Amino acid sequence: MDLENGDGARLMSRKDDLQQARREETQSVREGLISTIQHKLVTYDDILAKARDLNAFQRPSNRDYHSFRTWFWNVKPLNYEPEEDFIKRREDLVSLRHGREWSGFDGLVETCIRKMHGPLTQKLFATKELREKTDDKCLYYYSQSRIEKLVGLIITLIIFILLVLPVVAMYKLTSVGDRNSTFDAVGILVVFTLLFSAAMSLLTKAKRHELFAASAAYCAVLVVFISNFSNDGSHQNG
């Protein structure tokens, strides 16, 4: 209106006010945009943190996964096949079982117990609370602590055999005092050291350096045993 009326001075006097209003409008838009970006960035960081925590969960073992699929096959809780397809995406599943030492041998023992499922195994390896936890014939629980005790007993027996048998065999060989018997004792040492290493790797979750240290200690004990009895045999012969 001022321009149409020819009042140019009025327009010049309001020039600074218009620029200030435009700057304030631009600043307001900028602040709103920054606030929106900040909100989305915080939300994205929260999602990343939750994804990292979720990725840290344990993946289900073969035994747990197949048990879960068997339960789905028998019970069919969803009754709608497309919704059950997620069970086939094993890489997306996680297990809530607490972290603990659980080797393949432990799983083998538990699998054998499950295959022999019956009143006796339920009584030996399931507490009263676990037996009363479910009445579903396709679902039953075993006490992990009792299974671990059985596994510990079996491992103790195997270690005892691996320690006693080579000692008895080498004692009989070295007591003869023959040179060939000493070489035979060394052969027994090598064989039982390999058996001990294999037992350590299969029955436990020992790391490489732990496996190396245990095998070296086992071999050293047998070497000392051979040397002592070889010296005793030579003294007796002299």
Rank of each mutant, 00 (worst) to 15 (best):
L33M: 13
D16G: 10
N62V: 15
N231E: 03
Q144E: 14
S215P: 00
R63S: 15
L153R: 01
I226R: 07
S95H: 03
P60T: 11
R97C: 06
A185K: 00
I161N: 02
K88A: 12
K76Y: 05
G177Q: 08
V221M: 09
N74Y: 14
Y65P: 02
V176S: 13
L157D: 10
S143G: 05
R100G: 14
A21N: 07
E210T: 08
L163C: 13
M170H: 05
I87S: 11
A217G: 04
A49N: 03
D106W: 05
F72S: 06
L194P: 06
D135G: 12
L165N: 10
P119F: 06
E24G: 06
A126S: 15
T111C: 10
N180K: 07
S175L: 00
L3H: 08
L78A: 07
L33V: 15
F183M: 09
P82K: 02
F192M: 15
Y140G: 08
Y140M: 14
A199F: 14
F86W: 05
E4C: 04
R63T: 14
V109N: 01
K40H: 02
F192E: 00
G118H: 08
R30L: 01
T111F: 09
V221H: 06
I188P: 10
G187L: 08
F196E: 01
I37H: 01
I158R: 13
E81S: 09
K115H: 12
G32D: 05
T26M: 12
P60A: 13
D46Y: 06
M116N: 07
Y142K: 00
A126Y: 09
I154A: 04
D53A: 11
N74L: 15
Y142I: 00
S230G: 02
T127H: 03
R208G: 05
T127D: 10
E129A: 13
G107I: 04
S103N: 03
E83K: 08
L189E: 04
I159D: 15
L48S: 01
R90H: 09
K40C: 01
H98V: 03
D45N: 07
G233H: 02
D7F: 07
F196D: 03
G107R: 14
R208P: 03
N62C: 09
P77S: 08
E132W: 04
G233C: 07
L157N: 10
D184G: 08
